[in-house]
């Protein structure tokens, strides 16, 4: 049986290159997913075609395999792929580039000397999409698209760890829509849901990607702000307050405006648990509520 046919038809990219990074083999999968055929690329430097590979990490790992005969792994990672290629698959993917999982390994001659390297390239785009969907399913609140409460707990734990270990600050903003029960009672639950969705979306669209907005309870939200002090957090809360006050909803009875109240606090040394982190902004929110609403209170 001619094994080269197998290599040429297998649904995995396979290429080999020598110690000078000159391409020696380029299988069918590589040809159909790249813009290059074996005739063009074989005998030429890999870097002529993929200049992005000329980076420390790739070179370091190749050197390691050439020296020790180990395997180097480039697991699927949305930020790093070895070979920029168009994503394939039946459904449209949210990824602009094919997500890959690559392994580099040694090839030896009859004297057991390592003479060249092979790379296997596996398309992980579909798996990455699935993973993305699974993350959405398990981490997001289905109605508002904000993170759910379980994710919030996870984020706070993560930030608390970073704070304890590296003294990196973070702040918390608690948000509660004013008189939400009345809104629901007057205009119906569907309208209430619409309000929750819009409030969540407008906050999400007006903050750094790094911040995490979660739905904390019925009409209560909580925003985690990494690398942010009290000043930065209160500025964002004030921005949110104005944004929400500026939203207009249309109900059967005519236009409806809403407001929200805010409690702001920053992490402190003696906070050891998720509960402890949430207590201060929660208390501040309570004071905002009891002292007139549509305002922000900074934790003492």
């Amino acid at each position: 049986m001619d094994m080269s046919k197998v290599l040429d038809t297998i649904d995995t990219g396979i290429l080999t290159f020598d110690r000078e990074y000159k391409v020696r083999y380029w299988n069918g999968w590589m040809t159909s997913h790249s813009c290059f055929g074996p005739n063009e690329i074989i005998g030429r430097s890999l870097f002529d075609f993929y200049p992005n590979l000329k980076n420390n990490r790739f070179l370091r790992n190749c050197q390691s395999v050439l020296t020790f005969g180990n395997l180097a792994f480039f697991p699927f990672d949305p930020y790093a792929y070895l070979f920029p290629m168009k994503p394939t698959g039946l459904f449209k993917s949210e990824f602009k580039q094919m997500q890959q999982s690559c392994t580099i390994g040694p090839l030896r001659d009859e004297k057991n000397e390592i003479v060249s390297l092979y790379v296997s390239v596996r398309d992980m785009t579909e798996a990455a999409s699935q993973q993305e969907k699974l993350i959405q399913l398990t981490q997001l609140d289905p109605l508002t698209g904000a993170y759910n409460r379980r994710s919030l707990t996870f984020f706070i734990k993560e930030e608390l760890y970073r704070f304890k270990r590296y003294h990196r600050p973070f702040s918390v903003v608690m948000i509660d829509i004013d008189h939400f029960k009345n809104i629901n009672d007057q205009h119906g639950h569907l309208f209430g849901d619409e309000v929750l969705k819009s409030v969540s979306l407008s906050m999400q669209n007006n903050m750094r990607k790094l911040n995490r907005l979660a739905r904390y309870g019925g009409e209560e939200f909580c925003c985690i702000l990494p690398e942010t002090d009290l000043k930065g957090a209160s500025a964002l809360a004030e921005k949110f307050r104005n944004l929400i006050a500026g939203l207009t909803f249309t109900s059967k009875e005519g236009p409806v405006s809403i407001t929200a109240s805010f409690g702001v606090a920053t992490v402190e040394e003696d906070m050891d648990s998720v509960e402890a982190v949430l207590k201060k902004p929660d208390d501040a929110l309570y004071r905002a509520k009891t002292s007139g609403r549509n305002k922000m209170v900074i934790a003492a």
């Binding site: 990490r57 370091r60 790992n61 390691s64 395999v65 020296t67 020790f68 005969g69 180990n70 395997l71 180097a72 792994f73 030896r108 057991n112």
Partner: peptide, 22 residues
């Protein structure tokens, strides 16, 4: 992960190399 992988590869790779194996 990368340093771990390279150190493991180096140490185990050399060990089996000394013992004539892969």
């Amino acid at each position: 992960i990368e340093i771990g992988n390279i150190l493991t590869g180096a140490c185990v790779g050399k060990l089996v190399d000394v013992l004539d194996e892969n």
